[in-house]
Nucleic acid binder design. Structure first.
Lengths: 231, 231
DNA sequence: TATGTAATTATGTCCATACATATTTACACT
DNA sequence: AGTGTAAATATGTATGGACATAATTACATA
């Protein structure tokens, strides 16, 4: 067992966790002891353990030591890319059509998350993204014009809001809710499917650092779509 | 601008990215220069930049320097927990019922991913998880008995396969495919919904380190279920 | 017994330095 | 022009030492 870098330490620790040498709920030896055993510096052990803890397998607390988690809550990650890229990466021709662009009153719940005055009208867009001419995803988006004033005057016929926002709004947090919904008459028509068809649906809130919702988008994917996550 | 730890460096770099002081596609100053500017050690800058690069905002290459990514592909993370915990965390009473447990021939595609001989029979389970007595999710699982021989003789009436596997099989990689499907007659009956109802569906492959599929599970969630991801 | 304080301990992180490694650039040679 | 080799350069990472910080434990005091 020759340890060269922190990756080797990581591998060895993972091996011991797999082999149940350190069992769920148990405490690991402290970093100094492990460093002595592995013949490396404590910082090297520290790095390895921190990474493993980030992965969600260990719990580390000052003075409390490092403990093997009983329920290793695995984390799946999904890479969010532009719809355009997603389509083009699969080798299809990307198509985009703006269906409507109006200033409207947002639903109360959304208005609240955007911290807007009652009665205010904000940009509300509907658009269709297609792959090789086939409807791919229907986009229904609201944009908080008080956070992104420029958006009020942009013509989204040429450039999709999706792309414009990614390129012009600095990254920030948010959340994504996935579900299955039935296509309404209108939606079914636009996606060229039967009314009531099961549609994979993603609703995304994007917030700025002050936790104000910048944009809210609901994406209805055409049947057959699968979202792939790695874990 | 006083820099104290690597988090401060991270914050300052993020600020500059937000403020477009370093624009997409551009090269950042090298670590040594930044360290000099911030009045800290290069290792501190290194740590901050590595974290940001991990987040997917920067691209770092040896000798090539650190570049601002043009399409910052944001990453959404989903914490996978036991179904039992997911239900109990929402304050419901967890219920579990094994519907069937048989040894059957897996579909060809699955047999291949499990690297099994043709004709072999492996455990195939169906079970229903419920929340406060209401059907919550329908589980349909295959277990690769050549990787997990113990599984052949376990009685999954008491302990769900979900829980048994988590507790007995060391963590590993895999993937998760999310989609929307229509409930078949049988599924609709078990979930107490109408045939054809849109169901949020998760299909998960769990692999060991040798990339052999250990278990494959298809989860059909009752209507109304939403999967929440943070980004 | 209850409570406040100090000692202890394990992790968190900084620093300066050194060397490793990947990549590009420069340059000499053909 | 093409090719191979050496120099330069930015990141990757190990090290030992130091101090910070959180949390537990032990102990003294009321």
């Amino acid at each position: 067992m020759v340890i060269n870098g922190w990756q080797d330490v990581q591998d060895e620790v993972l091996r011991r966790l797999q082999a149940r040498i350190w069992k769920p709920g148990e405490l690991l030896p402290n970093e100094a002891d492990l460093a002595a055993e592995f013949g490396c510096a404590r910082t090297t052990v520290n790095r390895a353990l921190q990474v493993i803890a980030d992965e969600g397998l260990l719990e580390r607390r000052r003075r409390g030591g490092t403990r093997v988690l009983v329920h290793p809550t695995r984390r799946a990650t999904f890479n969010i890319s532009l719809i355009r890229r997603e389509i083009e990466q699969q080798g299809y021709a990307y198509g985009y059509r703006l269906l409507s662009q109006r200033h409207e009153r947002p639903p109360a719940a959304l208005r609240e998350r955007m911290q807007l005055q009652p009665g205010i009208r904000i940009p509300h867009l509907k658009a269709l993204h297609s792959a090789d001419g086939e409807a791919f995803v229907l986009e229904d988006r609201w944009i908080n014009v008080s956070v992104v004033p420029e958006a009020a005057h942009i013509d989204f016929r040429q450039q999709s809001a999706n792309q414009w926002l990614v390129e012009n709004i600095p990254f920030c947090g948010g959340n994504l809710a996935l579900s299955a919904t039935h296509a309404t008459n209108v939606e079914a028509d636009l996606l060229a499917v039967d009314t009531g068809t099961a549609l994979f649906t993603a609703e995304r809130h994007t917030r700025n650092s002050a936790q104000v919702t910048i944009t809210n988008v609901r994406l209805l994917y055409a049947p057959g779509y699968q979202m792939q996550l790695e874990l």
